[in-house]
Design a protein around this nucleic acid. Structure first.
Lengths: 171, 171
DNA sequence: CCTTGACATTCCACTGTGGACGGTGTGCCA
DNA sequence: TGGCACACCGTCCACAGTGGAATGTCAAGG
């Protein structure tokens, strides 16, 4: 009956912590799930309006700067619980660098190396960031579990990049 | 000037192999880049029409079963080359299981375990598949490079799942 | 007083997802 | 030989996701 998309469900999840505006929810989401679940401003406001229309969320009195806080209704709470108990779908990865590599026969080997090196730097940064956050002490073990995923992932990408030259230039 | 999205660009890429219909392109894409770049029927037909409108692709004479073959134009070839030489964007991951885990404090521990086990099976299957394809001999080293990514990724996920219980239940 | 910058929202064009639907040749087997 | 299953081939639609442009508001500091 409820049928929420994961993004909308996450918003309901965050609203368990008390009322919040779209703006706040965007930032909360970025911090808490942004590493493995993308969402945009536009989307948040759109979902919030839709959730309000379905009675899963209620708009409170507007604040300064046209701030519009929302709070969870009992229906919203129930919908969230129902969503959370559903088996999560499988992940989606879209990696443009792999596309470039897949068509790599039509590209300069040097250019390809450049691209890979550029991405490597990003991954190193992210890995370092995840490690720091774990070292600083994750807020709870669920967050720690997601950070552990991030670390495994980044390590895997880096390891792959290490073996790439051997694959790409005959061995 | 060209400014292609990666999906449209991939279609141009495939059309280097000769003319093809939307239907064929869907299947080609699934096989060759489906592991790290999702695309759907709807999207392919939409892009093909748009590419034709921009003159990057030309419709040939329709075949049986309303089959509509397309072939690359010189402009299309140029646009593809230009796209390929652009630095690829960073990857997008959206992993619903991580969302469920992030909100795991509101969920049965047993249910969570169930979900994780379900996903583990998928990842094991995919890993086995990638390994088989490498063992069978990848068609070229670029494909082999993308398969190597798949293997690293699946191994990482599996390793993460191995350490999950320790993280989730205090250690 | 004025500027800068964080706060807060809206709107839009485009891209991506997945299901429903409809029609057409081919090959098989009853 | 008639029919039926199935692969082939495409359209359409509603919804979800992305990213940039635009707009306005309050607070703090020079």
């Amino acid at each position: 009956m409820a049928d929420l998309n994961p993004t909308a469900a996450s918003l309901l999840g965050f609203l368990h912590g008390g009322e919040a505006s779209g703006y706040e929810l965007v930032h909360t989401a970025e911090q808490l799930i942004g590493d493995f679940w993308t969402l945009t401003r536009s989307q948040v406001y759109r979902e919030l309006a839709a959730l309000a229309g379905r009675g899963l969320v209620e708009a409170g009195p507007a604040g300064p700067r046209s701030r519009q806080p929302y709070r969870l209704t009992d229906e919203g709470r129930a919908a969230f619980a129902a969503w959370l108990a559903e088996p999560p779908g499988s992940e989606q990865i879209r990696y443009p660098l792999l596309l470039t590599i897949a068509f790599g026969s039509a590209l300069d080997r040097d250019r390809l190396t450049e691209f890979i090196d550029g991405h490597r730097a990003d991954h190193e940064k992210r890995l370092a960031d995840y490690r720091e956050r774990v070292a600083a002490g994750a807020p709870d073990r669920f967050t720690e579990a997601t950070l552990a995923f991030g670390i495994r992932y980044e390590e895997a990408v880096l390891a792959w990049m290490d073996e790439l030259p051997a694959i790409l230039d005959g061995r």
